[in-house]
């Protein structure tokens, strides 16, 4: 029950404001990506991602890349939450790790769906077993496995420590996914970097504004979803605790009745 006090109430003003800010930024990012960013590579790009444009499909980039970064963020939160849970045993860290894994899987699933949709006309194939795509698939399978482990456990509390170990070990692959395009020769484009977005991608100002709007929108959305998910996790724990207490009380009452007879 203590956990209820540690997670912001979703009905609080701050959480509502966060939700409104996140969805407003998403709307702005969609608008910029669809109507402001230019479509033709000839208009702005010299090298990098935009070279292999794919016409209007190139706009997938504005959602595919931020979704991938938010998936990394989610899995980093699993890593942090898992370490903190093993160190302290506090259930709130386990709830944080579990929720982050769930949201990370949602976003990484979207990455694995939108990527092939873009690749089909540009590469001529939906999928290539190159370093980036394969390591991203392994990352996705790792965290789907993590969620299965938690879902199939008979004792949801007992599985927390095993899940934490999986959450820590599984994170080893996340930097490999990110740096795979630099370490090995892959079909996958490098994409823009925060430190030097123009040089790496050849994006112009209009394209960068759409890209950065998405880069702000998706983490905001992640933060809001995580607060809501943490609230659900906390409620689950509180309900479970009360159900156990109630069952114990009923058991004692039945025993007393039998004893009285």
């Amino acid at each position: 029950m203590d956990n209820l006090l540690l997670v912001p109430q979703d009905r609080s003003r701050k959480v509502k404001l966060l939700g409104i800010a996140a969805w407003s930024m998403v709307a702005l990012a969609v608008f910029l990506a669809l109507f402001v960013a230019r479509e033709s590579c000839d208009d702005f790009c010299q090298q990098g991602f935009a070279d292999a444009s794919g016409g209007p499909l190139q706009r997938i980039f504005y959602f595919h890349v931020p979704a991938a970064w938010v998936a990394y963020l989610g899995f980093a939160m699993v890593f942090i939450g898992s370490i903190a849970y093993l160190r302290t045993g506090a259930q709130r860290w386990d709830i944080l790790a579990h929720g982050s894994a769930e949201i990370g899987v949602v976003f990484s699933t979207l990455v694995l769906i939108t990527g092939p949709i873009w690749a089909r006309p540009v590469w001529g194939t939906w999928w290539q077993w190159d370093a980036r795509l394969t390591s991203a698939l392994v990352m996705w399978l790792t965290y789907v496995g993590y969620l299965f482990l938690r879902g199939l456990a008979k004792d949801p509390r007992g599985v927390g420590r095993i899940a934490a170990v999986v959450g820590i070990v599984g994170f080893i692959n996340v930097p490999i996914v990110h740096f795979s395009v630099y370490w090995w020769r892959t079909l996958h484009p490098n994409g823009p970097t925060i430190s030097d977005p123009t040089e790496a991608s050849g994006l112009g100002a209009q394209e960068l504004s759409a890209f950065f709007a998405s880069l702000i929108a998706f983490p905001l959305l992640f933060a809001w979803m995580l607060v809501v998910r943490a609230r659900v996790g906390t409620l689950e724990a509180a309900v479970e605790e009360l159900e156990i207490t109630q069952t114990a009380r009923e058991g004692v009452a039945t025993h007393r009745e039998e004893y009285a007879l």
Binding site: G54, L57, V106, L110
Partner: peptide, 27 residues
């Protein structure tokens, strides 16, 4: 390609919206 772009967008925001709806319903 334009249709595929809208399919990708529909999947992206449909999945996020669907997940959020499930969370709120569970809550």
């Amino acid at each position: 390609n334009l249709v595929w772009l809208y399919v990708a967008l529909a999947i992206t925001f449909g999945a996020i919206g669907g997940y959020v709806a499930l969370l709120i319903s569970r809550q």
